[in-house]
Design a protein around this nucleic acid. Structure first.
Length: 267
DNA sequence: ATGGTCGACTCTCGA
């Protein structure tokens, strides 16, 4: 896996980028990652640790806000066509800190931090439902399923019962409620392949473990709410997709893990 | 598992 055609992409909800640099920087170097999509950076642009990434050979593009949200993409390859948020007429300021797009090595990348939604009877849940509708429109208007498109990030939805522990008890949870799973399914209908599921159809593996649950990893009390989706042509070039628990097992852990995918861009 | 822990920032909110 050292040939030039190998392309490794990862996604990570940092829950404060600056608080996770001790995990992210060594990991990028150790795992030879080409592109890392980051969510919940929780850092304003003027305070972004750009030098830390530049020093290890990564370009980084980002948009953040104080305390909440924030997205970034770190890349060893040149980054083109950077944009933030949606282009529709429902624009919210925070959308720019939740959706970042660019093109790297001929691959169209969309990195999202989907709103969590709070509770199914809260206005934020309606906003979350609309967010997926807007995302579906964005893919329909700006991309073709024939292109190499990769959409990843903290999707904040477990797509299927297999993707959350005790699914029967999560039916009213904003990350598993029927309406939100249907909204996500409609975006997926654009032509996306869920890469983790492509390679691990029956795996009960999760990308997020709540801090508040003791021994959550050991007891399998997690959620697969971070995902990497690709168009069919790009999925055909995928070699594997897996969850790296390193951030969750670190001495000063994160609640999310790394989700990684490898591609052979020559095939 | 049926509670609780982090991170950012004021002290309580968001996840």
């Amino acid at each position: 896996m050292t040939d030039r055609s190998r392309f490794r992409v990862a996604t990570f909800n940092a829950n404060s980028l600056r608080a996770r640099l001790h995990i992210i920087i060594p990991w990028l170097l150790d795992k030879q990652v080409d592109v890392l999509c980051i969510q919940e950076t929780k850092v304003q642009d003027q305070d972004f640790p750009e030098d830390t990434f530049e020093k290890i050979g990564y370009h980084v593009v980002f948009r953040g806000q104080k305390s909440y949200n924030g997205v970034a993409i770190a890349s060893r390859h040149p980054v083109e066509g950077i944009s933030f948020g949606f282009n529709d007429n429902e624009r919210l300021d925070e959308d720019e800190a939740r959706l970042i797009r660019c093109k790297i090595d001929g691959i169209h990348l969309v990195n999202t931090y989907v709103p969590q939604g709070k509770a199914i009877d809260h206005p934020h849940y309606q906003m979350k439902l609309r967010w997926f509708d807007r995302l579906k429109k964005l893919f329909e208007t700006d991309y073709s399923p024939d292109e190499n498109v990769l959409w990843c990030g903290d999707i904040n939805v477990a797509p299927e019962p297999l993707d959350v522990y005790a699914p029967g008890k999560k039916l009213k949870h904003v990350c598993f409620h029927e309406a939100i799973r249907k909204a996500l399914a409609k975006v997926r209908e654009w032509g996306f392949i869920d890469l983790f599921r492509k390679f691990h159809p029956n795996a009960k593996e999760y990308t997020f473990y709540d801090y508040r649950i003791r021994n959550a990893v050991k007891n399998g009390l997690g959620w697969r709410i971070d995902q990497i989706y690709t168009s069919r042509p790009l999925a055909a070039m995928a070699l594997d997709c897996w969850i790296d628990l390193e951030p969750r097992l670190a001495e000063k852990p994160s609640d999310h893990t790394f989700l990684v995918a490898d591609f052979d861009l020559d095939h």
